[in-house]
Simulated scan of single mutants.
Amino acid sequence: MIKFFRKIRQKLLSKNKFNTYLLYAIGEIVLVMIGILLALQVSNWNQDRKDRISERKLLDNIHRDFIQNKISFDSVKAINYRSLAALDGMIALFPLQRDSLKNATFWKYFSQIQDHTYNPYSGSIALVINSNSLQLIQDEDLQEYLVSWEDVLLDYQEEENLYYKMMNDHFWPYWREVLDYSGFDNEISLTGTSTVKFQNYIIDKRNYLRAIVKAIEEEPIENHINEIIRLTEPKE
């Protein structure tokens, strides 16, 4: 092709057709530029296609993780609500004052309480952030949710950490002192549950758990989970 164009230029010059040659040269330059632009366009299109494939894989991984994270969060949320209701029922019985009937109801409520932390899987988001793959994600709202997820999660878990610190440092050590875990000496347990200190620890437990429930209701963690699921949903 280059030899073909060279022959045409030489033929025009040999016939002293300079103006025609000049127009031809300009046309040749334009054709070359068009060819380069087309090549760049094809290259950009191909790269964009690869980027969209990579983006879809990232979104699918995040979507899958957060479907499970939502299931886990809904479970923890339900557990916390049930436990808080049970604690309110226990506190309504105070003072117990060695009343065996009240104690029986108290322990019935206590059996409904579960302690469960929320530990979502965030590996897919960490991979996106740490590998600089965030630029592959086109949705700016989703980018913002992904970048802020860790901070939102830590804000929520702060309330959980305070709750379990109180439980481990104060609640359980005291219970091990005043209650008969074997169940053989009911008198010890009746005495232990009748103390003001015991009842105050139950109230503390309720108040700390109420802070977790408040975080569920007022902090953005649940909305973050739902929005990440929505924004990573596969498009039909």
Rank of each mutant, 00 (worst) to 15 (best):
Ile2Asn: 08
Lys3Gly: 12
Phe4His: 06
Phe5Asn: 07
Gln10Thr: 11
Ser14Asp: 11
Leu23His: 07
Ala25Tyr: 09
Ala25Met: 06
Glu28Gly: 12
Leu31Gly: 08
Val32Gln: 02
Val32Leu: 13
Met33Glu: 06
Ile36Phe: 07
Ala39Met: 11
Val42Ser: 08
Ser43Glu: 06
Trp45Arg: 07
Asn46Arg: 13
Asn46Gly: 07
Gln47Ser: 15
Arg56Gln: 12
Arg56Glu: 14
Arg56Lys: 08
Ile62Asp: 05
His63Ile: 02
His63Trp: 00
Phe73Thr: 02
Val76Phe: 05
Ile79Gly: 04
Asn80Ile: 03
Arg82Leu: 05
Gly89Met: 01
Met90Phe: 11
Ile91Val: 14
Gln97Thr: 10
Gln97Met: 10
Ser100His: 05
Thr105Gly: 07
Thr105Asp: 14
Thr105Val: 13
Thr105Met: 12
Phe106Val: 04
Lys108Asn: 15
Phe110Pro: 02
Ile113Cys: 10
Thr117His: 12
Tyr118Asp: 03
Tyr118Gly: 00
Ser124Val: 04
Ile125Tyr: 05
Ala126Asn: 15
Val128Phe: 08
Ile129Tyr: 05
Ser131Pro: 09
Ser133Arg: 13
Leu134Pro: 09
Leu136Val: 04
Gln138Met: 11
Asp141Gln: 13
Glu144Leu: 13
Asp151Lys: 15
Glu158Arg: 12
Glu158Cys: 04
Glu160Met: 01
Leu162Cys: 08
Met167Phe: 15
Asp169Leu: 12
His170Lys: 14
Glu177Arg: 09
Leu179Asp: 00
Gly183Asn: 00
Asp185Lys: 10
Asp185Pro: 08
Gly192Arg: 10
Thr193Arg: 00
Gln199Ala: 09
Gln199Val: 04
Asn200Ala: 01
Asn200Ile: 05
Ile202Asp: 01
Asp204Phe: 15
Tyr208Met: 06
Ala211Gln: 14
Ile212Gly: 01
Val213His: 04
Glu217Leu: 01
Glu217Gln: 12
Glu218Phe: 08
Glu222Lys: 14
Asn223Asp: 13
His224Gly: 01
Asn226Glu: 15
Pro234Gln: 00
Lys235Thr: 06
